[in-house]
Design a protein around this nucleic acid. Sequence first.
DNA 1: ACGGCTGTACCGTCCGGACGGTCATGTCGA
DNA 2: TCGACATGACCGTCCGGACGGTACAGCCGT
Lengths: 196, 196
Amino acid sequence: MSRLSVVEKVSAAPQRGARERILAAAEALARDSGPGNIALDAVAAKAGVSKGGLLYHFPTKARLLEALVEQFLATFDGALHDREAQSGGAANSTARAYVDIMVEEQLCHRPPPSGLLAALAENPDFLAPVRRFDRQLLDRMKASASDPVLAVLVFLVMHGIKSGQLLNTETIDAGEFDGVIARLREMLGPAPATPA
Amino acid sequence: MSRLSVVEKVSAAPQRGARERILAAAEALARDSGPGNIALDAVAAKAGVSKGGLLYHFPTKARLLEALVEQFLATFDGALHDREAQSGGAANSTARAYVDIMVEEQLCHRPPPSGLLAALAENPDFLAPVRRFDRQLLDRMKASASDPVLAVLVFLVMHGIKSGQLLNTETIDAGEFDGVIARLREMLGPAPATPA
DNA sequence: ACGGCTGTACCGTCCGGACGGTCATGTCGA
DNA sequence: TCGACATGACCGTCCGGACGGTACAGCCGT
């Protein structure tokens, strides 16, 4: 440990965040070249990195895919915790938070997490973390729910929407989306006075 | 003209329905080797056909994938029409039919349509027919629905369940499944006296 | 304070294997 | 004998990833 400047670790980092750029490039590739067609060469090119450079950060394709789902899960989990924290431990708080996030993402036109599909295409086992996460999420929703069945129902509707985005099946339109969200919120009972 | 023994067809046309066997083999491969790893060689082997034989029935991989989604859609559409015919043009008949089919499939432990994922992995455009089908289905559900929003809600729950099967994410258990189905049927109103 | 050593970040070439697709060659049933 | 159906050897391309560089920064004995 160098005793001076713990703050700056910039030294041998020619470009900031090659890792992030690679991840983003992979996502983009998956989105518009098909989830099964992510070639490492292409990812490297799109990220502005050489093939060797890419292999440095992700020693194997499997690791890259892993990182993709990890990133997705982490992002979502973060957003969820934030949302939930806002409305303390009120009834149905987790379910409501999930709905809120969905709406938020819809508003931002957030691109769907195609990285997940890429991972799945390579090997179904890569989705194991997602499986675990989803199960935990559902349990939390049920735990804080006024009615367990309602929690499951909300969970499934969210997944239905997600699957539409994921498969690039823009089946439902904005109006239908809003309608269902409104209905769901109605079923979840009055929101606990959320200012700001 | 030997019209004897139509039963045994062991030689040139060794097994009837090479096409079906190929499709089935492809599905199976997709399911347990990952949707992106369907090699024509492997499909041929699993179907008990030579590579050339496979290429005879499906001149290209794209055609095979197309056939996979086509088959899926046709099967589902057939089941839906049957179900719907039973309960005439009653209120929510389409939505109810959808739910019924879901339950049926759940009972039969029908393996998920991994072929869809294989097609998606190769090229997202292959799902265009699914997109069209889903849109029409949703419209029909809304048309026969007592409440349009309810139709969309049911549609999304069904898709949520499907996505769970598709991604091999066995998130919800049997009890939760039954609970949601019951709730959905409740919301759809009393079933119109289904005899037999 | 300098020259060597080590560690980090990245580059670009190369190889072996996998995979989609072609083709010349059967083999039956009618 | 014709044509539908099937075979399996073969070709060309693409891709994962191994490997051997390069450049630069810090530590270190002297």
